[in-house]
Nucleic acid binder design. Sequence first.
RNA 1: GCGACUGUAGUCUAGUCUGGUUAGGACUUGGGCCUUCCAAGCCUACGACCCGGGUUCAAAUCCCGGCAGUCGCACCA
Length: 576
Amino acid sequence: MIVMKNEDVMNLARKRGFLWSSFEIYSGVAGFFDYGPLGATLKNKIMNKWRNYYVVQEGFYEIESPTIMPEEALKASGHVDHFNDPMTECKDCMDVYRADHIIKEATGEEVEGLENQRLTEILSEEKIHCPKCGGHLTHVWSYNLMFQTLIGAKGKKTGYMRPETAQGIFIPFKRLLRFFRGKLPFGVVQLGKAYRNEISPRQGVIRLREFTQAEAEIFVDPRDKSHPNFKAVAGEILTLYPAISQEKGGESIKITAQKAVDNKIVASEMLTYQLCLARRFLMELGLSEDVLRFRQHLSTEMAHYAIECWDVEVYTDRYGWIEVIGIADRTDFDLKSHSQHSTEDLRVFLEYPEPRVVKKLRVKANMGKFGPLFKGDAPKILKALEEIDAEDIKQSLDTDGVFQLEFNGTMHELTPDLISFPELEENLRGEKIYPHVIEPSYGIDRIVYSVLLHSFTEDQDRTYFQLPAEVAPVEVNVFPLLNKDDLGRAALHIRDDLRKENIIAEDDTSGTIGRRYARSDEIGVPFAVTVDHQSLEDHTVTIRERDSQKQVRVLISNLPETIKGLISGKIKFEEF
RNA sequence: GCGACUGUAGUCUAGUCUGGUUAGGACUUGGGCCUUCCAAGCCUACGACCCGGGUUCAAAUCCCGGCAGUCGCACCA
């Protein structure tokens, strides 16, 4: 049974301090949300769980880079060009077009890079109308998904809020490569805010203008996308929705990770391994198999940097299937592009298993003649010769008897008596290549939302978040059964003892015990400890489990250890 | 971005059409009473007309603008 009610979930989340829209007293700004006291803790716990997965278990390292980036870096990444489209809209049929595209279609002129105002003028000068219905077009506006800012007192340098955390990992690649002592594969992660100035963010926490990403960039040898630990996940069953099924209107398929690779449904072990990891992560957060699927991007929707991408989607009642994680093979797009724009060599030297012997021609000058002929220019001409493929020079000499070299604006004729071509055996130990990047990119806010949505439970007389104990923002509540005698004081002692053991413990004395259980359940506290009169006599208390509402009695002295075991899952409540 | 509709305590809502007393109720929440285990009851307290401007003797109510929300269109590299 799956109960989801976006409305009820968001109401409860707002009421109990998980999530609310930001800047409410100034009537709010669309696309921004606050995490309240419980929400922030829940989110942090989910992020820490993510760290445990990727940093501790996978052995990747976390870095932190600035959220403001200079224009050059985002030009290299392709974001400046892809986020700056001049748009125009038909006043009649309301279709939206790229203004430069329409003009090019109508006039054949390339107008890319012109100012919006100029484009607007061209539209009216050339009497260009809506290609669909012939209606009038609006003025041209910039459709820019990045938040722009100016860096420095004089504000001469344009900066942008980063649209993804990934770039912060690609840019210092040389230093990272050195940190990992030059060996592939290695993984670097970053958790942090990213910013996109969405046109119309109207889907609550699903499309935020400022959101939290957790991204891992795994740098791999492009010729070897196997995974050393693939066996560990090979038997896991994945719900895949490949591009080809989507195009044919087909259904998703259930298939083992091994078969997905064997049948080439997913391109590599590396990618498939990441799918399995994502699935495990979400399931441990309480999302069940039947609300999860992996949808492959169609070639038309793929981002500019990827060759293959799988979205991990979660089913929601309000929005249908939503993407919570994107797992992409970004190839060498980013490193190559940053190399070209920055002139830094971001390649990795990969050693061959065996050195390769390559036979090669070398240009050898007969210095006895070469020197006197060219005098002072001789060394420079020699250097220029080395830049040219020896095969080409030899061929030219063999056929024409002369090789023309342009140097410093004058032509020099090189004759066969000046140079010879001894054959050399070169010992190649490896080559320099751009690593490929496998990138799982988690949308933390959407995951928090999914966890709340799917943990939301309504039974006959309770409404509550059935959060996994591991991520519950309050781990245990301590209640005196009644507000009299010394029960309250005893409860506070117990609460403090639990806190000393790093357990998130709260107390509540307001209202009847039933009301307090209800309040406690509502925010998903997995366990409640109740102090009664018997506690004062035999030093025992009861532990009540949220989901079963059953109680067991334990010694107060064993309580912290028991609660810890229950939260971590090492002790099962049913086993008492 | 465009259009339609909507906006009263934490929540749900009465009042708005037809301008006029101290903006009413329920739930929630805080304090207290009662209470030996699952939102009971009683007393009590806190708490609101989205923001700005206009019309008027007087605006929650009428008008204009803004913001936000919902829906539709579009957008979502």
